[in-house]
Measured scan of single mutants.
Amino acid sequence: NQASVVANQLIPINTALTLVMMRSEVVTPVGIPAEDIPRLVGMQVNRAVPLGTTLMPDMVKGYA
């Protein structure tokens, strides 16, 4: 099963992502693939992302 990117903490709206904010986990539904974590660093979320939430492509500005 493919691992997805999951929020390791509450990520406030418009926050630029850092490695410490994300972890990989096998979840359903599948979100952004864990191998894209390096690409996500520095990108901003367009909404608040609660701890444990799977990051979906539409949550990250410029990802989709």
Rank of each mutant, 00 (worst) to 15 (best):
M43D: 09
I32N: 01
N1E: 15
Q9G: 07
L40F: 03
I13V: 06
A3K: 04
M59H: 12
Y63K: 02
V27K: 06
A16R: 04
T15P: 01
L40M: 12
D36C: 15
D36L: 10
L10Q: 07
N8I: 15
D36N: 05
A34N: 10
A48E: 14
M59Q: 05
M43L: 13
Q2G: 15
K61D: 04
G31F: 02
G62C: 15
M22F: 13
I32T: 03
N8W: 13
I37V: 08
G31I: 02
Y63S: 03
M56A: 13
V30M: 09
A7N: 03
A16D: 02
R47D: 15
T54P: 05
M59F: 15
S4G: 15
V27R: 06
G52V: 01
T53C: 03
N46M: 13
P57I: 06
L19A: 07
L55M: 08
P57E: 04
A16N: 04
N46A: 04
A64F: 02
M21V: 04
A7I: 11
A48S: 06
A64Q: 14
L51R: 07
A3Q: 05
M43C: 07
N1L: 11
A3L: 10
G52W: 08
G52Y: 09
P50R: 11
R23H: 05
P12V: 12
N8A: 15
M21Q: 05
V60E: 01
V45S: 10
S24P: 12
R23I: 06
L17V: 07
V6E: 03
T18M: 09
A48L: 07
I32F: 03
V45M: 14
P29N: 12
A48V: 08
V49P: 01
M22L: 09
R47Y: 12
R39D: 02
V26Y: 11
P33V: 15
M56E: 07
D36K: 11
P33N: 13
Q44Y: 13
M56K: 09
N8R: 14
N46P: 05
V45K: 00
V30H: 09
K61G: 04
A34F: 06
V20M: 15
G31V: 03
T53A: 10
G52K: 08
R47F: 09
D36P: 01
P33I: 11
D58F: 12
A3Y: 09
R39Y: 13
S24E: 12
E25R: 03
P12F: 13
V30D: 14
Y63M: 14
M56T: 11
A3E: 15
K61S: 11
A3P: 05
R47V: 12
P12L: 07
N46C: 14
G31K: 02
V27E: 07
L19M: 14
V6N: 02
P29I: 14
L55C: 03
T28I: 05
V60Q: 01
G52I: 01
V45A: 15
R23D: 02
Q44N: 06
Y63V: 03
A16V: 05
V27Y: 07
V49I: 13
Y63E: 03
I37D: 00
Q44D: 06
L10G: 11
R47H: 06
T18E: 02
P38R: 08
S4C: 03
V30C: 06
R23P: 00
G52D: 11
V20A: 09
I11A: 01
P29Q: 13
N1F: 08
R39N: 05
M21A: 03
V5D: 00
V5F: 01
T18Q: 03
T53K: 12
M59L: 06
N1I: 15
A16F: 13
D58H: 12
N14P: 03
N14G: 10
Q44I: 12
N14Q: 04
G52Q: 11
L17W: 00
K61Y: 10
L10V: 05
A48H: 11
P50K: 10
G42E: 03
N8K: 15
V49M: 13
I11D: 00
A3G: 11
P12G: 09
P33Y: 12
T18I: 07
D36T: 11
R23Q: 03
T15E: 05
N8S: 14
V26D: 14
A48K: 07
I11K: 00
T54M: 08
I37M: 13
E35F: 06
M21I: 03
A3R: 02
M22E: 00
N14L: 07
P12R: 03
P33G: 09
L19E: 02
A64N: 07
N8F: 15
N1P: 15
Q44S: 09
V41F: 10
T54W: 02
V49C: 04
A3T: 14
L40D: 00
N1Q: 15
S24G: 11
L51I: 08
V27N: 11
G42L: 04
V20S: 07
M22V: 11
E25K: 03
T28Q: 07
I32V: 14
P29H: 11
P50F: 13
K61E: 05
Q2C: 14
M22A: 01
N14K: 04
V26I: 13
T18F: 09
L40Q: 01
K61I: 07
A7F: 01
A7Y: 01
T53D: 11
A34R: 03
L10N: 04
S4L: 01
E35V: 05
V49Y: 01
P38I: 06
P57W: 07
Q2K: 02
L17Y: 01
V30A: 09
G42W: 08
M21R: 11
I32M: 05
M22C: 06
L17H: 00
V60G: 00
M21P: 00
Q44E: 06
S4F: 07
V41T: 08
E35R: 03
T53I: 13
V26G: 14
M21Y: 10
P50T: 15
I13N: 08
L51S: 15
Q9S: 12
P38V: 08
P29D: 15
Q9Y: 12
V49W: 02
Q44R: 08
T28V: 11
I32P: 00
M56W: 13
V6W: 04
L10K: 08
E35G: 09
T18S: 10
K61F: 05
A34D: 13
A16C: 05
N1H: 06
V41M: 09
N14H: 07
L19C: 08
L19V: 06
N1R: 01
M43N: 15
R39A: 05
R23V: 12
R23N: 04
G62T: 08
M56C: 14
L19R: 15
P57K: 12
Q2E: 15
N8V: 13
M56F: 05
V41I: 12
L10F: 09
R47E: 08
A7P: 02
Q44K: 07
R47A: 11
V5L: 05
A7C: 03
G31R: 04
P57F: 06
L51N: 04
L40P: 00
E25G: 14
